[in-house]
Design a protein around this nucleic acid. Structure first.
Length: 454
RNA sequence: GUGGUCGUAGCUCAGCAGGUAGAGCUCCAGAUUGUGGUUCUGGCUGUCGUGGGUUCGAGCCCCAUCGAUCACCCCA
């Protein structure tokens, strides 16, 4: 290895980037906490069995597996090797895998701790996840998700609050966005009406592409997937909806009047949309998008997706209700609903729209210039006082040329430089220079602290 | 997993009909031995992504490989 490198689809985060990333994480975290969600972390790796089968066939292929330690081939049969039976081999050489999302590990946690958890259980989780996807714009192999889920409550109050959380966080970050909402029960209703109830997943995958391939494209794909002309015609009825959220719901209820699940979905949407309207949103708009489907197959009720305005970027947030997520781990009848912020994409959007506040860069407020041993000791004594007062401060660690020390402060965007040379030492003063204005004043240590505390 | 484009200094890029590598910025030093961001002067940096092939000769042509990027699939 000549030049060091990092695996594809992964990134280093420099201090400048981390400060911005933390700004995003902190904003989202504080909103989660404001709504009563509690922090949770789970291991980076899970048992393979915990993850497989939860994300569909496509998803399973994207799970990063961790090679067993030691003689990992010991339980692979000679026969399997000879015939290259990859699934069988894979299964016996990797018993752990990196987590693919935060929702499944959360479901696992709930099931394992069901007797000590008080329901409804509201948790948030901000951790990286890994997918063996091919990287491209806004798509990485390691990225962070910021999830908030509540389990053990069927109430639509949760959905309404989650919409508010989207709005609160994105408004705080000043990201212009539209929250799209739909309901899987409506899609189910359409599927029933079209006589393809057993193929709802296929149907949703096709219609999810409406905004990308257009109505003709969707019709074409449905045809290719073997849907009958009648079924396609019925599904097509969805595309003719128009008007406000409420008007679209009215049209839908006529269309789906014969479908029990369809009508239930409409009622649920009405509730969430009406409540959100009464309570009000800060800067986001809430839009019913009947073609919103979302790939994850565990969603059963409301589904959410958030699109940033003014940039070419996939959805920046997602979410929805799942009636039986914990069922696969043996705990039935626990309904949950949750959302996820895609922090990396939000970062990219904010970069593109230049939404990061300038002063976020100022981590150190004060730099003590270093003139030599005697002055240095005085500086370090002052530093202790300054730091005790809650001011971020540092000393240039060696008595380099002034030019160099000031340049350091300038590069690091440190607001003030404290100069203590022989003259200041004798008069017990500090020459304090404000870097931006260039103004320099003589102050005492107490005055300095008072000034920087602001 | 499928297909397209690309890969030259730390960064952004130039290079030509195949003839032994350049510009700007950054960085470093000095002008200015207690003062940065402006200015001026000087200086450093490359196995031209990697491996092979064609050729007297390859940064340039061919093949492979790795990486980046875009589209598809899927998704945050």
């Amino acid at each position: 290895m000549s030049q060091p490198a990092i695996p594809k689809g992964t990134r280093d985060f420099s201090p400048e980037v981390m400060i911005r990333r933390n700004y995003i994480f902190n904003t989202i975290r504080s909103v989660f906490q404001r709504y009563g969600y509690m922090p949770l972390e789970t291991p980076s790796m899970e048992n393979v069995d915990t993850l497989t089968g939860k994300y569909g066939d496509e998803g399973d292929k994207l799970i990063f597996r961790i090679l067993d330690s030691g003689d990992y081939l010991k339980s692979v049969s000679e026969e399997a090797l000879q015939q290259r039976q990859l699934p069988a081999i894979t299964k016996s050489i990797a018993e752990k895998a990196l987590r693919y999302d935060l929702t499944v590990p959360f479901a696992r946690f709930v099931v394992m701790n069901q007797h000590s958890i008080a329901f409804p259980f509201k948790r948030y989780q901000i951790q990286p996840v890994w997918r063996a996807d091919r990287p491209q714009k806004g798509r990485y192999r390691e990225f962070y998700q910021c999830d908030a889920d509540v389990v053990g409550s069927d109430s639509l109050v949760n959905e309404v609050e989650l919409v508010q959380i989207f709005d609160d966080a994105l408004s705080a970050l000043k990201v212009p966005a539209t929250i799209k909402i739909n309901n899987r029960k409506i899609l189910m209703g359409i599927a029933e009406l079209a006589g393809v109830a057993n193929r709802m997943m296929e149907m949703t995958i096709a219609i999810d592409k409406l905004d990308k391939v257009g109505e003709e494209g969707v019709v074409k794909e449905l045809g290719e997937r073997g849907f009958t002309t009648e079924a396609v015609q019925t599904i097509r009825g969805l595309f003719s909806l128009s008007g406000s959220n409420e008007e679209m719901l009215d049209q839908l209820s006529t269309l789906l009047s014969s479908s029990e699940s369809g009508m239930k979905g409409i009622a649920e949407l009405r509730f969430v949309i009406a409540r959100s309207k009464v309570i009000g949103l800060n800067s986001c708009s809430l839009e019913l998008d009947i073609t919103l489907a979302r790939g994850l197959n565990y969603y059963t009720g409301a589904i959410f997706e958030v699109k940033a305005l003014g940039v070419q970027m996939g959805s920046i947030c997602g979410g929805g209700r799942y009636d039986d997520l914990t069922g696969i781990f043996g705990l039935k009848g626990v309904s949950g609903v949750g959302i996820s912020f895609g922090a990396d994409r939000i970062y990219d959007v904010m970069t593109e729209l230049q939404l990061f506040p300038e002063n976020e860069m100022q981590s150190t407020q004060l730099l003590f210039a270093n003139f030599g041993e005697k002055e240095e000791l005085q500086c370090m004594q002052f530093l202790r006082q300054v730091r005790n007062a809650g001011i971020n401060a540092e000393i240039y660690p060696e008595s380099a040329k002034m030019k160099k020390q000031f340049k350091y402060a300038d590069d690091k965007q440190i607001a003030y430089v404290a100069i203590i040379g022989e003259e200041e030492l004798q008069t017990s003063t500090i020459s304090l220079k404000h870097m931006q204005s260039g103004e320099q004043t003589k102050v005492t240590i107490d005055q300095l602290i008072a000034k920087l505390r602001g």
